[in-house]
Design a protein around this nucleic acid. Structure first.
Lengths: 362, 362
DNA sequence: GTGAAAGCGCTAACAC
DNA sequence: GTGTTAGCGCTTTCAC
């Protein structure tokens, strides 16, 4: 592998001169155009590629940021994509620090330190871990920012970190408002059941919008299913909702996954969507577009969240800006597809499939 | 940031001694247990974290591999996950080298060289690019391997690279065999339409299985839709298939995306799946499980593909094994869900929903 | 058993 | 206008 010394020898100059020319730091020093050209030619001729490792060592910092967290779920990879795009456009590379359970979380932090990363984006939601990571990393001068797909309890226990979120509360309120506008009155919520965490904002938005529409929320209208992917439980939650003589005419779901299961369950119960039941999801994953019928859902701006968090991190790295803001909340968008329709007066809904195209309600 | 020198000073030894102890290279040299302990204690007390950059520089190589390619599509991220898991378990980190079109592909190669990566996994399917990358990287002693989700033309023009593929030909043949076993005779294929590339293996598998079952493949039975995500075109392809008086009773699709569109189109045409029409997808993406009805599909082992390609790459890096094998083909699995059913003699199909659970046909 | 010296490829001060 | 010197934090080699 050719080094600067090789280039220098070939161009008949000293090695530091090569460094100056190749990095374009010819501002202060005067280097003759002829020498410059000779060096550039020599570099090209030898196929010189700068050794970023050596550069990083002498500079004391790398142009690499780390991303903590899994990379399986669709929303994570979409956020990751945003992060990588922005990072790369500013000359930074992205290293993946996968934490698959156990003490490998600790290891991830250590890796970040050992690699002398310029900064770290966490996609974790484990608040306890974040606190520890924060302590360890800031001690080493490595900024940490968080991008979160599940708007956690924004209460007291939250670590004082800059984080990017989607406005789940407003998003869910928009979904309910959409249904209210379609004439629905009995609107149920199916959400996740982990105690006291991820789904709080979405439920809050639901309740807020229901209150605003002066609609009542009987206890039976809010179902918490523990395992989101647990079909049996979800189906049971739906069944118990539909068993009610005054069953809901519309259901908002805290995730697209739940909504998909609701669609299947509705079908199995002989209910047609949206004729007999309107369904709204949350996230706008791939599958929502391909659902039957295509799912009306609240789109979270995952890519954008990744972009924003990366941009803030890079600002912090460049010292341009201290990470002062506690969080940045990005708006969601309601995507109206075909799983929602007008409620009829008798509690049934009217199909208006033909006239309805996919559209976005800002 | 504390260095080895700091630790050495604290322990009252020379810095290289610290290096030996902390890296466990105490085999050849004799270092007293007391000194060893003093050094370990000092390291712990100072919170010493080795600087991997410095180490990489002096060793001339990093323990980092790069991954070339996009990270948006689900199968890519699933392959990526496999790569990262294996890499990390062997002490390697993964850097993402996103190439979003144009000359940024070139830049990706340069980045790999400049970062002195230990090896590179490509998830690209651009054969011309791969040839160039191969040349550039091997010149620098950086091994390159390929993991491919679309079994490309395995013909002459292919670069001599180690690559991991899924056995799409056999997978598609399995899908057809499954339909044949259910009594279907008129089985159509809907595939992608890029001339002469990605879909070849799947079509080949289809034709092979049809031939084996002594079924005819009229020209109209194979539809190529250019844009896979182009609903209008896909719907048209289906419509023209179904317009035929002797319409197919089953359709195999080259991707799950196509299959999802077929499900929607079938519904819009008043056909019930699987009662009137059996549908099989390809890939087993998330959405397949949540389709209506849940989609029978050929599962490609994406995670596994990533694991295998990473393992081979690491072997090559360690010099354990030269990259001799031209390719490794991993088996697919037919996942039977509810979008396929028995064909009835009159060209209609019988619903056997209740008795059929999700199952895997090996 | 341990210390001293050299050098990886580069940048940042200087001196010439 | 250009060359020289020093040093980043570590590993390796060799002398004590």
């Amino acid at each position: 592998m050719t080094t600067m010394r090789d280039v220098a020898a070939r161009a008949g100059v000293a090695q530091p001169t090569v460094s100056l020319v190749l990095n374009g730091r010819t501002a202060g020093t005067y280097i003759s155009e002829a020498t410059r050209q000779r060096i550039l030619d020599a570099a090209k001729a030898t196929g010189y590629q700068p050794n970023q490792i050596a550069r990083a060592m002498v500079m004391g910092r790398t142009k690499v940021i780390g991303v903590l967290g899994g990379i399986s779920a669709e929303f994570v990879t979409r956020m990751l994509r945003g992060v990588v795009m922005v990072a790369q456009s500013k000359g930074y590379l992205v290293k993946i620090l996968l934490a698959h359970g156990g003490d490998s979380q600790e290891e991830s932090i250590q890796r970040a330190v050992q690699q002398r990363l310029a900064g770290v984006v966490s996609m974790h939601s484990d608040e306890a871990f974040l606190v520890k990571a924060q302590a360890e990393l800031t001690k080493r001068g490595i900024p940490l920012v968080v991008v979160d797909h599940t708007q956690l309890n924004l209460g007291a226990r939250q670590a004082p970190l800059f984080r990017v979120l989607s406005d789940d509360e407003q998003g869910m309120a928009d979904a309910v408002a959409h249904l209210v506008q379609l004439g629905h009155v009995r609107i149920a919520l199916i959400t996740g059941g982990y105690p006291g965490s991820a789904w709080a904002a979405r439920e809050k938005g639901y309740r807020k919008a229901m209150r605003k529409a002066r609609l009542s929320v009987p206890a039976a209208a809010v179902k918490k299913v523990v395992g989101v992917t647990d079909t049996a439980e979800c189906r049971e939650a739906l069944a118990s909702l539909l068993r009610n003589p005054r069953r809901p005419t519309a259901i908002v779901c805290a995730t697209d996954h739940i909504a998909m299961l609701v669609l299947q369950a509705a079908w199995d119960s002989g209910l047609r969507v949206p004729d007999d039941l309107s369904v709204v999801g949350f996230a706008d994953l791939d599958m929502a577009r391909y659902a039957h019928p295509p799912l009306t859902t609240v789109a979270q701006p995952f890519e954008r969240m990744g972009e924003v968090v990366a941009a803030r991190l890079l600002d912090a790295i460049d010292g341009k800006q201290t990470i002062a803001t506690r969080s940045e909340v990005l708006p969601t968008r309601l995507i109206v597809r075909r799983s929602t329709a007008m409620a009829l007066a008798d509690g049934r809904t009217r199909l208006r499939r033909k006239e309805r195209k996919e559209r976005v309600v800002p």
